[in-house]
Every structure is written in C-alpha cells, then in structure tokens.
Design a protein around this nucleic acid. Structure first.
Lengths: 148, 148
DNA sequence: AGACGATACGCAAGTTGATTGCGCAAGTCA
DNA sequence: TGACTTGCGCAATCAACTTGCGTATCGTCT
C-alpha cells in the first residue's frame, strides 16, 4: 500500500471543492498555506504529479503559460471570464460533432481537443449592465491576472 | 520613421513562407541562423515582440508551454498532428456557431476562443494504414519535432 | 557633410514557473 | 525492532522568456 501523503490528500480535497474549477500549483500552494499547512512548493508539485500519474487529476493547458490542474472527469472544455478571472467547465458534447466535420473537411483524424472560450460570464455581464439584482456569488474572484 | 530592423524583416519573411504555419522563438532563431544571420535570441525575441506590438504577428497559445507565433490574419484554429508534429490552420467558421450555443446554454458571452485539435493528419493516417490512396491535398509535410 | 538623437542588437544577467537531487524523518512490512 | 520505502523540506537546476546596458548604426536635421 502506498504510504499516504498528507499534502496529496489536502490537494485533492481542495480541488474537489466546487468554489473553483481549475488550479495552478501556486493557487494550491496558497490554499494549503491558508489552511495552516505550509508545504514546500516542490511538495505540492510532487503531490500533484502523483495525482496526475494515478489519473486522479489532469493537467489542463489553458494557454497562459502556466500549468493548471483539475480533477479528472468527463472531458470538458473551459470558459474563462476575462473580467473576473473565473473559469467554468463547459460540457464538451457541445463540440462533439466537430471531429467528424473536421474529418470530412480535411482528412484530419481528431483524437482530442482543447477548447478555451474567453469572454464575460453571466455574472459579470449583469454587473456591467447594472441589472444585477441577483445574489451574485462571486468566489474569491481575483480579477485580472493578465499579462505575464 | 522607425528605423528598419533587419531581424524583424527576416523574421517576417520566414513566417510568411507557407512551409510551416506556426513558429516558436527557437525555430525562428534556428532558421535565421541557417540563413547566415546569427542573431542573438534576445534580438529575435525583440523583433517578434515588435511585430506583435504592431499587430503583424500574433502569439498562439498552443498549450505546450512555449510561445508560438504566426502572421496575423483571420482568426483560425489549429490542428496539431501528434504523429508528425505538423500544425495546420483550421478555418474558424467551423466553430463559429459555438458562441451562440454557449450563450444560450450558460449565459456566457463568448468574445474569443482558442481551439487546438490534436490527432492524426491525413498523411500520417495514410502512412499508418499503408492504404495510401492519397488524393488528399496537403502541403509540404516535414516530420518530427515532438518532445519538449 | 557632419552632428545629433533614436533605435537595433549583442551580451550578460534576471525572472518565473517547473523540476530534480539529496538527506532526514516518518511510516510500513517482516 | 530493524530494514526498507516513501513523503517532504531545502536548495539547486533547467528552460523559456525577459530586461538592462553599452555600443554600433541609422535617419534626420542643420
């Protein structure tokens, strides 16, 4: 039996929380630190690596030059709100027929895809219009985080 | 008048060649070196930065942790062959109706997207099957270039 | 033509995020 | 309990990108 790793367990529990959908190593490390554990970044990295190796979490290339991780589940795509920075999963069935269309179109055999949609999430759109009479949940939404 | 930059001009000319569709800084630097110029990598970086700032080229986040650049044109998406490493542009109209579907589906206002399809290109699929009744249109496939 | 200011570019160093080596401590198994 | 394995902190390394600085060169102005 593999020896249990405290950090890996905590990481997994953090990642299973619905508050957020996708984590960078940094964010995980911050969360762990906030919880009282103050692990070394390398330990977080190793924990996530282990989880990835075991197939529990997957790495999501979001195109911002950092590694993002999420718990493994049905393949899905991602919506990134450019206003609040939140990320939402997007049922991938919505692009399911793409493969066959592409194949017919160019002979390319699609075996996987990575789609990231950016724009404004419902909440932020409401805010912008001032219509916002709604219980705006907005997690720790750290805004921005653009530019490298 | 801005002073002309030899490197930027060469970079642009390389990127306009049809042989390839998407370049990393390294690849550009290699090509330039092969041409006899042997610029400093930082100069290539600055040249590309300038071109990007002027809107002549755009950075394409391909999710492999490196910066890829291509000449700016109509927005399009990308097909990456996992066998030969080639990258092809994919007319983006093929995912054009996605935005409205997503909006209806989740209230998310899509303003942009980045889609990378991976799989096997027609050539590699033919090769694998030996069936090679290739009539498939295709440009100059240069192989290799996987791995990090 | 010569002076001058701005820019390109090479060199070297710095930054950032990811990854690895090493050694100690703690857990597991026999 | 002793040997072996594994988790984890610390520090170092790596890769890709980015920046600072000094010099060479260009374009313009007089």
């Amino acid at each position: 039996m593999p020896r249990r790793s405290l950090i890996a367990e905590e990481v997994l529990e953090i990642m299973r929380r619905p508050a957020r959908h996708c984590w960078t190593l940094d964010e995980l490390h911050d969360d762990l630190t906030r919880q009282g554990l103050a692990p070394d970044p390398s330990s977080v990295f190793r924990a996530v690596c282990g989880l990835e190796r075991s197939g529990t979490v997957v790495r999501v290339p979001l195109g911002d030059g950092r590694a993002h991780y999420e718990v493994a589940s049905e393949h899905h795509d991602h919506l990134v709100c450019t206003t609040c920075g939140r990320m939402e999963p997007l049922a991938c069935s919505i692009v399911a027929d793409l493969a066959s269309r592409v194949r017919a179109w160019s002979g390319f055999l699609v075996s996987g895809h990575q789609l990231v949609l950016s724009g404004t999430c419902g909440i932020c759109a409401d805010d912008a219009h001032g219509t916002s009479q709604r219980g705006r949940r907005r997690s720790t939404a750290q805004a921005g985080k653009n530019g490298r």
